[in-house]
Design a protein around this nucleic acid. Structure first.
Lengths: 154, 154
DNA sequence: ACAACTCAACCACAGTTGTAGTAGCTTCAA
DNA sequence: TTGAAGCTACTACAACTGTGGTTGAGTTGT
């Protein structure tokens, strides 16, 4: 459960959060360098965004190494993604189905994908009864022994 | 085919476009009144948005009734939705699957839904071979004789 | 101990968005 | 033909976004 903080993130903020999530934690410099070189803003731009994210409560300073602050995400990737989905769904009149339909229609989702999802899912539903199972947040292909500490809040 | 105009729409603009799509065409007043009463902006606010949408090429004036201009959408609902999906997908690392996974995880999409979609889809795929089939954009339940002129661009 | 670096803090600024007021045409009913 | 009502075309403006410069303090190798 754990009520997640609801913040609206802009495009650039999301981009930066992406870097933070990928890093786990890091300095502004590290975060900047984590961003793809082509669309990599100036150091101070990233810094500004980090500050704004901090005000919004999306990241926080955890410690200081040398004279550099180390930041980490407060808002989880999942929470942020959820927010986005909700907004998208709102536009779609709240129907996840029409969303999916369109994904299919544009070929972004194949029948194949759906079948896979379905089987994964029904498996999951079955074993659901006994023991908590966590659906992985990302890289659903590599089923390694869980990427980092993924708490229930994540 | 038919290359659709790619415009970025803001939340409010989308809201207004929603009204325009729903109406087919209408005056600023009609569009305003089409919006849900709770979040209904002032007349002039809607007017401003319409003007901006016009500049962006998302709507156009089709005629004049009395002294009121009648607007209609240039950008289709589908095109706009697609744009949104693409952006969301970008955030999700381009994977529609993780998007779906999350929809499922949050219970916004049930196994049931997926199965239905799957069967609808495989049916469709089968008859695809012979004759163009159009997956409906909205209200998939009421199969009435097409809501107005829906051109191939829609 | 100091020069060379690196960061943190601020500041700036234009473009976008949300929101709406005002002034002045047009129309329509009397 | 006139006045009310409805519209259009402008204007305003604050908050939010994207982008990055400047300045000065902290850290470090030599």
């Amino acid at each position: 459960m754990a009520r997640d903080k609801q913040v609206r993130l802009t495009r650039l903020e999301l981009e930066v959060m992406g870097a933070v999530w990928a890093l786990g934690s890091g300095s502004v410099r590290e975060i900047q360098e984590q961003l793809p070189e082509h669309k990599r803003p100036a150091y101070t731009t990233v810094q500004t965004i980090i500050y704004r994210l901090e005000e919004k409560g999306a990241v926080r300073r955890v410690k200081k190494i040398g004279n550099a602050h180390i930041f980490e995400a407060v808002v989880t990737r999942k929470a942020a993604h959820n927010r986005l989905i909700d907004e998208l769904l709102h536009v779609f009149g709240g129907s996840p189905r029409s969303l999916m339909a369109q994904l299919v229609e544009t070929g972004q989702l194949t029948l194949q994908d759906i079948r896979e999802l379905e089987s994964t899912l029904s498996d999951l539903a079955t074993r659901e009864s006994a023991g908590k199972t966590q659906v992985s947040d990302e890289q659903p292909r590599r089923a390694n022994k869980k990427t980092r500490q993924s708490r229930n809040t994540e």
